[in-house]
Amino acid sequence: MLSEMEFSQWLNQPQHFGQIKKMAAGIQKRLVVANLRLPGTDAGSDPQAALEEITQELAAFLIETPGLQPMLVHDANAATTTVIRYFLNHARNMIRSSAHSQDVYKDNWRAFRRHVLAVLGDADEFVKFSAPRDMAFGRSDTARPVLIPPEKTAEIPFPPDVPAHFERMNQKKHILNLAVHFWGHCAEIAGTRHVRMNLNDFISWIAMYVPLQVTREIPDETDATIPRISTPGPDPEKKSCVEAWVNNFYNRLDARQKQIFYYYECLGYTGKQVAKRMGRKSHLTYQRDLIREDLKAFLCPLEWVSPSPEKGHAPGDPDAFHFFMETLCATLGQNLEKTF
């Protein structure tokens, strides 16, 4: 069995990633025929941009699915049909999950990636390169590609002058500051003046410090793991009502469900990270989806909060729902961080 690092290095070789792109093109055709679209992808994107997003999703899926890796490494052409079939099943599960929890779960990763791509693509400080696995950038047209292990990029500190909060950080000036900081440190690690780094490497580094799923307030550096309430929320009377509903839903969850919800929805951890944190070999996405469904049903009677109210009622105020989620995450964080 290959390690994640070994398979990522195999995948990053141009001839191998070229085969992944061909598989993604086959997947794209099948999605178009079935009138399906991956959750989080841009509905208005052109076919080439859509193909890039499918390719990135497929690569991430393969990295997180060790069972497919040996046959892919042994003979990628022979594995094509199997990989496409498994990924289409994965895509359908993603689509069903997204449809069932449409506004309860918001995935910022892809939207943020598109924003970062646009910011760096327009910046005079950066040069864009086509790369076999991902879009790449450098600070000079002579920047050379380097392979820096994830454990090395993980050592790059987050600059103190950039807010560690998604909504405040997701601005052009902060993204550029982060990029200059990241590329500078990567060049230092590589022992050269200029390096060419993949876009996803940069975003993965940001995600170590700033959750890209559910936004939260970071009050200070000494308590950066506990989500805080950042939205103003409803008026005082409604605020008291929301807090009561938060408390009721919190008490509906058992200890394990609280951990699953907190890791996925509040801290934005990936399935692999949650499984590792909870000592499980498989992902806990099914249990997560059950909790989302329970939350959706729980909020239905509260029309002014619920993103999916009972039939005949308009969706609630997004700010009220956001306030509910942040209050719930804060409650979970304050009670669970003590035992994690």
Results as ranks from 00 to 15, higher is better:
residue 200 N to S: 06
residue 322 H to A: 15
residue 321 F to H: 11
residue 249 F to L: 03
residue 74 H to T: 11
residue 217 E to R: 14
residue 48 Q to T: 06
residue 234 P to D: 11
residue 213 Q to W: 15
residue 285 T to V: 09
residue 208 M to C: 12
residue 275 A to C: 12
residue 189 I to F: 05
residue 261 F to W: 05
residue 72 L to Y: 11
residue 293 E to W: 02
residue 306 S to F: 14
residue 149 P to G: 09
residue 340 F to K: 15
residue 85 R to Y: 12
residue 168 R to L: 15
residue 40 G to T: 06
residue 132 P to F: 08
residue 115 H to Y: 10
residue 142 T to N: 01
residue 21 K to P: 07
residue 92 R to H: 01
residue 148 I to S: 08
residue 291 I to E: 10
residue 28 Q to V: 11
residue 87 F to H: 00
residue 49 A to E: 10
residue 169 M to G: 09
residue 246 V to Q: 00
residue 303 E to G: 14
residue 23 M to Q: 07
residue 161 D to L: 03
residue 64 E to Q: 08
residue 85 R to A: 15
residue 269 Y to T: 01
residue 92 R to I: 03
residue 271 G to M: 08
residue 298 F to I: 10
residue 268 G to P: 01
residue 143 A to K: 01
residue 257 Q to F: 00
residue 141 D to W: 07
residue 246 V to H: 00
residue 254 D to W: 13
residue 156 I to A: 01
residue 255 A to E: 10
residue 283 H to T: 15
residue 77 N to S: 15
residue 143 A to I: 03
residue 256 R to Y: 03
residue 211 P to E: 10
residue 40 G to Q: 06
residue 334 Q to C: 15
residue 108 N to G: 03
residue 21 K to M: 14
residue 9 Q to F: 14
residue 6 E to A: 11
residue 331 T to N: 13
residue 202 F to N: 01
residue 107 D to Y: 01
residue 99 A to T: 14
residue 18 G to R: 03
residue 229 I to P: 10
residue 127 V to P: 10
residue 63 I to N: 02
residue 107 D to H: 09
residue 335 N to W: 06
residue 136 A to K: 08
residue 191 G to E: 02
residue 300 C to P: 03
residue 202 F to P: 00
